[in-house]
Write a protein that binds this DNA or RNA. Structure first.
Lengths: 155, 155
DNA sequence: GTTCGTGCAAACCGTTTGCACCGAC
DNA sequence: GTCGGTGCAAACGGTTTGCACGAAC
């Protein structure tokens, strides 16, 4: 554990925001100007391999890392196609269903990732995405599971 | 619709196999030696934008395209972490649950993608992944939904 | 000293693009 | 002729790597 790695850890886990490798480098450089890109990439690889960080697919061109899997190993993502905001959610029903499907196919699941792309109806009326405010608040914090679950609404 | 595009379409939809851009180029070149990489990439962009092809996240470094979304717009993928094989499946329960979650969060879902990473228990015993044979057979063909669903097994 | 991590710059690789050419109309 | 698609090669951008330096032991 060197000083550089401490800086990068602080940059990565200092908030629960997602980030790209480049963004992490910028964050780390704010803490220590000398931090090099190479070290960031190398540390990123270590963190990913160690399971502290996970790469998520947000449908963007660049790879995005999520530092929240340590606290919430089973959370998933909803991406607002209107404003691009990402909402994290957990759902125990989903977990059970995934497990059922996996076993039916003859496997034991190790991990999974679900991305939902969606748009909010209110945006079209109000011109503003009301869920901007929800971003990463209420989602993926204690109690979030209940919030995102509750009584399923019949589709 | 030019000859080159016909060739690329044939290469892309001639089988239901997933492919990378590079692999598509190789396939297309087998049909017409002159096909250029640039045209493949440009056509790929058109097909993706037109919704005929979808990029999927198989957890690999390269982008993988799936030509099976026209026939099965809602299918998902299970990746065997032991042998790397990909199994396509459809599950109506999953679709309903996703819709519930999405509405609970205040959205209308437009599309979603689920990737399950799993290992088969039998591999460890037999040394062979029995699900190799299932690859894209039985999965994502008429009746597949029933196969992957059935009575959910309690986890 | 040895070992391991770091910083820099160059290399790498998948993808995109500028530009000249070609073919259909 | 115009317009759009194509092929080539160069450029691009994110990521990795070779190598010399530096810090910890």
């Amino acid at each position: 554990m060197t000083r550089q790695r401490e800086v990068i850890l602080q940059a990565a886990f200092g908030s629960n925001e997602h980030f790209t490798a480049e963004e992490l480098w910028e964050k780390a450089r704010k803490l220590d100007r000398r931090t090099s890109r190479a070290t960031v990439y190398r540390t990123l690889t270590l963190l990913r391999e160690g399971g502290l960080l996970r790469e998520i697919d947000l449908g963007r061109d660049q790879k995005v890392f999520d530092p929240n899997f340590m606290d919430h190993p089973h959370h998933n993502h909803l991406v607002c196609i209107d404003c691009g905001e990402v909402i994290e959610f957990e759902d125990s029903h989903m977990r059970v269903l995934e497990e059922c499907i996996t076993r039916r196919l003859g496997f034991r699941s190790t991990k999974s990732s679900l991305r939902i792309e969606a748009c909010c109806d209110r945006l079209r009326k109000d011109g503003v995405c009301p869920n901007l405010l929800r971003k990463r608040l209420g989602a993926c914090v204690p109690g979030a599971e209940t919030r995102s679950l509750g009584v399923p609404v019949a589709p």
